[in-house]
Design a protein around this nucleic acid. Sequence first.
DNA 1: GTATATGCAAACTCTTTGCACCGCT
DNA 2: AGCGGTGCAAAGAGTTTGCATATAC
Lengths: 152, 152
Amino acid sequence: MIEEQKQTKDFKWFNNQLNVYLKSQDLKQTKQRKVVIEHLLEIDSHVDAEMLHSSIKTKHPNIGLATIYRTLNLLKSAKLVKEQSFADGRAVFEIDYPDTHHDHLVCLSCKKIVEFENETIEETQIEVAKQNGFRLTSHRLDLYGYCEDCDN
Amino acid sequence: MIEEQKQTKDFKWFNNQLNVYLKSQDLKQTKQRKVVIEHLLEIDSHVDAEMLHSSIKTKHPNIGLATIYRTLNLLKSAKLVKEQSFADGRAVFEIDYPDTHHDHLVCLSCKKIVEFENETIEETQIEVAKQNGFRLTSHRLDLYGYCEDCDN
DNA sequence: GTATATGCAAACTCTTTGCACCGCT
DNA sequence: AGCGGTGCAAAGAGTTTGCATATAC
């Protein structure tokens, strides 16, 4: 129940953010876009377009993959989701809650992903960029290793 | 001249490493593979397959793109090159000199890539991992922003 | 001589786009 | 009513693969 409340709350917030963006760009809210948001929030971790589409197809078999891609790109423009591309070429998306930047610790054995934040690393990154004449806008840090459970 | 000596030296080392690997796997050394290595060393930075192919086509118009891909994958198996995919989905390759870890600063405008090393970040990463019960084995850090030339 | 490598083109995967129709506002 | 959105299928980009031929060992 608590989960459900949280999801409803997030959905309202997310949907509201999107509406603001849509209005500012003279775009429209649609059933399909709401469905994509619902499923993004339900999954609430890293998904690729295909996975999201399968998840949606069960209840909404008529929503096409192209709409998923178009909606994800729209949400990207609205800065509501982030895109990351991994070594195998697939693009992976995750919700971009504002003011909640985090990096990833990935267990190579059980694939568990732990999110973390570290102020020292963030600050040092800005400094490194500055030293090289760059103005930093974003970064990506993934740490790979073995978690307690898997490291014997 | 110094550059040329360096390249020759690197080529011999690289070629030798590859020969060891090829023998261990009952594979063969070929003209094409040597050409790919030469050009990889000459470029000596991040290349995608297409760029490498253009660079090679001038002198060796008969070497196909498929061979470039096959050779890059071979070198990856031999742990002589690393593959990274950046935000746009293209796979980018670089020579993997042993014991030379570095991270990347990427200009979002001109796509220039600057390599850097930072001891503070490396140490903090190990600590963060430890705090989360992880034993760290590797990591990937990409900083995105705009370089001096592009940031106006 | 035999197994691997190559070149070419076709196939494949992921993502985007063109077009006719649908549905917000 | 009008303009943006959708679904479908086709087109694109990047990469891999099948096959006949060439070549290293």
